[in-house]
């Protein structure tokens, strides 16, 4: 741990403090880590959402790198335009373009533009900060909201147990475009995220990294346990950490599987799955999803 702190001191802070993110915000930490890995020679294109709001208020920008926000659903197209302009003026060898969107901007409203950007092969790294709902507008369900999670638009009630569908598998959908690099990462594992950002930026063409970022406000979790929660999500198998580098799958394995119940119990958004008699059957369904991921990706260390 002290080692990390030492490194921290010597690093440039390209994402300055003083922004207005909530305490324990996983996304703000991840942005700082992504930029630290990427360095100064980048242009960031950011969708409307929490990140844009807490970092880019007029006169109070946190961005020490060139930054543009346009709209909610169009960052993949704006980033394609930035890249095209750099290409047309011979500057693409020196500058990297990074698009940053939330899970709603990526999985839902901006999905067509992202598919277009990936298919056309623009030299852009797209980073999706996945906090599993529309947090900026007040915790509404997105395509990345997990099965049975409570959001304000998938509330549990007499006739509902929360979100009625499993989480959309975005990394695999992006992978189907035939792009050279797709990875999942988490704010819980800094070194892994750092490595993946650096690897992605060393590759020309479209790249995609989905970073799992707990949201204490939206998930009803303890703001002091964001990193711990992120690690548990990975080590339960619910958010598998892997990368597909030119077709080769590499997995971050864990030695001890953490039961999903431990993860769910840390969050108010899953509280309705636990009654007086303990966990409902749906918790076992969620465990089955985690187990299937462990099996599919080989997440357990042998």
């Amino acid at each position: 741990m002290p080692k990390v702190k030492e490194r921290d001191k010597s690093c440039d802070h390209l994402f300055a403090s003083g922004h207005t993110a909530c305490p324990g915000c996983g996304q703000s930490l991840a942005v700082r880590l992504v930029l630290r890995a990427a360095g100064r020679n980048v242009i960031v294109v950011n969708s409307t959402g929490c990140l844009e709001i807490f970092s880019s208020k007029y006169g109070e920008s946190s961005w020490e790198v060139p930054y543009i926000h346009s709209l909610f659903e169009n960052i993949a197209a704006v980033a394609s335009g930035v890249e095209s302009a750099l290409k047309a003026t011979g500057r693409l060898d020196d500058v990297r373009v990074i698009a940053m969107g939330g899970d709603g901007a990526t999985a839902d409203i901006g999905f067509g533009a992202i598919s277009g950007m990936m298919e056309r092969g623009h030299d852009v790294l797209y980073v999706c900060y996945d906090n599993e709902a529309y947090m900026n507008t007040g915790i509404q369900r997105s395509g990345c909201t997990p099965h049975y999670a409570r959001t304000t638009t998938s509330p549990p009630g007499k006739a509902s147990l929360g979100n009625w569908r499993p989480k959309k598998d975005l990394p695999q959908i992006i992978l189907a475009h035939g792009v050279p690099y797709v990875a999942t990462a988490t704010v819980g594992y800094y070194a892994d995220l750092d490595k993946k950002v650096k690897r992605a930026l060393s590759i020309r063409g479209p790249k995609y990294i989905q970073v799992h970022v707990p949201c204490p406000l939206g998930w009803g979790s303890d703001s002091s346990r964001t990193i711990e929660l992120a690690k548990i999500a990975a080590n339960s198998g619910l958010f598998p950490l892997y990368e597909v580098d030119h077709g080769e799958l590499k997995v971050r394995r864990f030695g001890k599987k953490i039961p999903v119940e431990e993860y769910l119990n840390m969050q108010v958004r899953f509280r309705h799955l636990f009654g007086k008699d303990g966990a409902r059957a749906e918790v076992h369904e969620i465990q089955a999803v985690a187990d299937a991921n462990i099996e599919k990706y080989g997440l357990m260390a042998k």
Partner: peptide
């Protein structure tokens, strides 16, 4: 750079990004 996009929303967004990059 002549860029075929997947819709007009993206066509306008793409030239927006390019214009912001100074071309």
């Amino acid at each position: 750079e002549f860029v075929n996009v997947e819709g007009e929303h993206s066509a306008a967004s793409l030239v927006l990004g390019a214009s912001a990059t100074g071309v």
